Simulated scan of single mutants.
Amino acid sequence: MTASFAAFGNLSIDDLVFVDGSTRWGVPGGNAMYAALGMAVWGERASIVAPVGPEYPLGPLAGRIDLSRCPALPRTLRNWGLYEEDGSRHFVFRRETRNWADFSPAPSAVATGRQDAAHIAPLPWQHYGGLVGALRDSGTRLISLDLDDRDLAKVGLDEVGALLNSVDLFLPSRQDAEALFPDADPIEAVRRLRAIGPDVALIAVKCGADGVVAHAAGARQGIRLPALPVDVVDATGAGDTFCGGTLVGLARTGDPLEALLFGAVAASFCVEALGSSRLAAATPGEARRRLDALRARAGTYPI
């Protein structure tokens, strides 16, 4: 039976402010959209599970993503996306949509379809446990999870550890890792997360243009994978895209390095254009060619 994939998170319309002072208003985005397109790069037609309003242009995505599980809302989540010189980004909710929970999927959304593998994108902290529990109860085999650094100052490491140990792929960003461990670089953050979650199949810290550092359960060495050298236009959504590709890679191959390669290749398409246009047009054939080019650049580090 072919695996089915789903991305649980948000659909949003983003107003972006870049470091050079340029802006772009009304860009259709959202972590669930980018994660699902990261799966679509590899030929999967994943479901998005994210509430959405009538002004979001779903039509262009219909051929690549299953949109039948998106609950209808009167309006779509809207953000300011503010970029820093070091590559970090801050998303601030617009006044009319400031209650993030109203635009996020509830555990009951799991029952609207089937998913053998699911990615949970950044959501309000209180949503994670219920979604993971509902997915496990429904028989979901693989669960990947990304964090949001805004909530991490409010929760303890014991709570983070419980969440970490409930999933199969734990995929925070460097910003998330810094919020958890302010005194640690990404490799040290992976080591500390591994100490908390010794059996989690794959732990990876996404480092933007610096690639990703990761560790597979039981491995004697960590994995260091650079980003593919492409012309970067806009990095919005690249981390979410990486997560979607990585989940597909692990589901298909069972190999952590291959999973990371799938993720890095998917992200490389995302950054080549503003919004999702290049990502939505990427084909599995293009992805395979990039994967072959990147595989030889993978390295290791002592764990």
Rank of each mutant, 00 (worst) to 15 (best):
F170A: 13
L164F: 05
P57V: 14
T241G: 10
V265P: 02
A259D: 05
Y56C: 01
L77T: 00
E188W: 03
S166T: 07
H90C: 14
F262K: 00
N165V: 11
G208H: 03
D183Y: 01
L163P: 08
D183L: 12
E85Y: 13
V230I: 03
L73G: 04
G275S: 11
A117L: 08
G244D: 07
V233C: 13
L291E: 09
P186R: 08
V167S: 09
R290S: 09
G254C: 06
D14P: 10
A282I: 02
G139F: 05
T283Q: 03
V233A: 15
P74L: 13
T97L: 07
V213D: 05
G9L: 08
V271M: 14
D146T: 11
G87N: 11
S47W: 02
W125L: 11
M39T: 05
M33Y: 00
D176R: 12
N79S: 12
S108W: 10
T253C: 06
P57G: 10
V155H: 11
I13N: 00
A201D: 10
T241S: 07
A282M: 03
R220N: 15
I223C: 05
L164S: 04
V205G: 08
F18T: 14
T76C: 00
E188Q: 06
F5A: 10
A293K: 12
T112M: 08
P74D: 15
P71I: 13
L58C: 02
S68M: 03
F181G: 08
G53S: 13
R297W: 01
V205A: 01
L123R: 00
I303F: 14
D210N: 05
L11R: 02
E188A: 13
V212G: 11
I48V: 15
G239K: 07
A72Q: 15
A179C: 07
V155P: 08
A287V: 10
A259I: 06
V230Q: 05
V155W: 04
T112S: 15
R192W: 04
I303K: 11
F8P: 09
F103I: 02
P60W: 09
A293L: 14
A189V: 05
A235N: 12
D15A: 10
L123T: 01
D148C: 12
A266V: 09
S47I: 01
A109T: 10
V212Q: 05
G222R: 13
H90P: 00
G63Q: 02
L294N: 02
E159Y: 06
P172F: 14
R89L: 07
E55F: 14
R289K: 05
V167T: 11
D185K: 07
R136I: 09
S104I: 03
A177K: 01
N10F: 13
E178A: 14
D116L: 06
P122E: 10
N10I: 04
P51A: 09
P122S: 06
P124S: 06
D20G: 09
A177G: 10
P172I: 07
N165G: 05
Y83N: 09
L250T: 04
